[in-house]
């Protein structure tokens, strides 16, 4: 039942994307007139903690671009530190500054509830990004944009199933950040598939924090442990491409054979992973488009007009593997 619902949402999201692209290409004279006659440009507050990976860079740029086009005014502060405490303060600051809309990429969900409640009190609609729909009460946000985390995890597992079939496969799981909905969703999806394939089993897991250096260190630790326990490592499931690249680097540094013997799968679809797939060092990645600026703008404009925004926009995905990597390399992020 849930899958069916997802499918319907997926279709909704796709149609919205088309709509958004349309908007961009034709320019929709009516909306422009509206924005001119209103004269008031909505103030959009953006709050996110993690910025330093190519996928996120593209995502932030797409939001900055809608601000450049003059459709919204963007209020955004670069994080001083990568903690949820900083995000709480950042949200409070944005609310105090009187933004009209909040775009929030939660680092963790629980500590942010207080601020989301404050935003509701001030009647500031919240656009949640990358959010597991269960983790935050529906009344605290206006709309939600996300990829389907569970599905992404499932596809990663599926890639490994395809490669290893009935052969035994020892897997290392590199998580994202602790308590983040992304981590939870992707892990859940991955494990769902693994449940049906007992020959695939996870022998070690560590947090990579969506960061290449942290993930590399985590993988180095696991390699030493695995060596001690005499357990061969056959595959790595990383929650993001950065985690995967970190693991790949750790393997390279340790002199382990990459590609042929150890397969790495992850999610995002950044350029370096694409290169690694082409070089034969990486099994595959689940690519999703991070250019969400136009979607956010559409949702904001819906709310500006007084119509109820779509409750949820699910971003579609594509698989990149050795078969299509060269072809898809230019569009990698």
């Amino acid at each position: 039942m849930t899958i069916r619902r997802f499918k319907s949402l997926l279709i909704l999201g796709l149609s919205l994307l088309l709509f958004a692209c349309n908007l961009q290409s034709t320019g929709f004279p009516i909306t422009e007139e509206n924005s001119v006659s209103d004269k008031k440009i909505p103030k959009l507050g953006l709050s996110l903690v993690e910025t330093s990976n190519p996928w996120r860079t593209v995502q932030i740029n797409s939001i900055k671009e809608i601000a450049r086009s003059g459709s919204v005014e963007l209020v955004y502060y670069e994080p001083d530190e990568y903690t949820v405490e900083w995000q709480v303060q950042n949200l409070r600051k944005l609310i105090e500054e009187g933004v009209d809309y909040l775009v929030v990429v939660p680092h963790e969900t629980a500590p942010l509830r207080e601020m989301l409640e404050l935003a509701r009190e001030r009647e500031i609609p919240v656009i949640l990004i990358e959010q597991n729909r269960e983790s935050i009460p529906r009344e605290l946000y206006a709309t939600l944009i996300s990829t389907d985390y569970i599905r992404e995890g499932e596809i990663c597992a599926q890639m490994l199933v395809e490669k290893y079939g009935d052969r035994p496969c020892n897997i290392v799981e590199i998580f994202g950040t602790l308590n983040s909905p992304v981590t939870k969703g992707r892990s859940e999806g991955f494990h769902r598939v693994l449940y049906k394939h007992p020959n695939l089993k996870i022998i070690a897991s560590e947090y990579g924090n969506f960061d290449r250096v942290t993930a590399q260190k985590a993988m180095e630790k696991i390699l030493v442990q695995a060596l001690d326990q005499r357990k061969p490592i056959d595959a790595v499931f990383a929650h993001s491409d950065e985690d995967g690249l970190g693991a790949l680097q750790a393997l390279k540094v340790a002199g382990q054979p990459v590609g042929t013997d150890i397969s790495i799968v992850s999610i995002n679809g950044v350029q370096d992973v694409c290169k690694a797939i082409i070089a034969g060092e990486y099994l595959g990645t689940v690519k999703s488009n991070p250019r969400w600026g136009q979607i956010i703008l559409t949702l904001v404009q819906m709310m500006e007009r007084g119509t109820k925004p779509f409750p949820m926009v699910i971003i579609p995905y594509r698989i990149i593997n050795a078969e299509n990597a060269e072809e898809r390399f230019p569009s990698a992020y």
Binding site: L248, Q249, K252, V253, D272, K275, A276, I278, A279, G280, E281, E326
Partner: peptide, 14 residues
């Protein structure tokens, strides 16, 4: 080959 090039790229990056 492109494989060789990219592999070297990734090494150089490191």
């Amino acid at each position: 080959s492109i494989q060789e090039q990219y592999s070297t790229d990734l090494r150089g990056d490191m």
